[in-house]
């Protein structure tokens, strides 16, 4: 599957990415988490479908501990929708695609 639009965020480029007025959905995940793998393909699909309208990104919490700590994330997958640097919406667990679509559409 083409996932060119899916951005891999790090602690270093996180703040600059979410500061944009384009909504940005970040999937906080780790390789040891089963439900993260379940929701992975959904996030990949969204990155294609929302190309140009929203930024869809993933952040590996193992490699980037600072950002999840800042947002008090103690469960994954957690998906946070940002706009202008602010948290707009947040959901934890392998939710269905429709819930993420609703979140994104409200913010666009």
């Amino acid at each position: 599957m083409a996932v060119d639009n899916l951005k891999q965020l790090t602690d270093a480029d996180f703040d600059a990415t979410i500061a944009s007025d384009t909504p940005c959905l970040v999937d906080f995940w780790a390789p040891w988490c089963g439900p993260c793998k379940a929701i992975g393909p959904v996030v990949e699909e969204l990155s294609t479908e929302y190309a140009g309208k929203a930024t869809i990104a993933k952040m590996n919490v193992d490699d980037n501990p600072a950002t999840p700590g800042k947002f008090g994330i103690r469960a994954i997958p957690t998906l946070i929708l940002f706009k202008n640097g602010e948290v707009v919406d947040q959901v934890t667990g392998a939710v269905g695609k429709s819930q993420l679509v609703a979140m994104l559409d409200k913010a666009i």
């Binding site: 780790a30 040891w32 988490c33 439900p35 993260c36 103690r74 469960a75 997958p77 667990g93």
Partner: peptide
Amino acid sequence: FAGKGVSYCATCDGPFF
């Protein structure tokens, strides 16, 4: 506190603790 300490999946979230 869902996702901020309340968890339903030990394998997912154990390493945060």
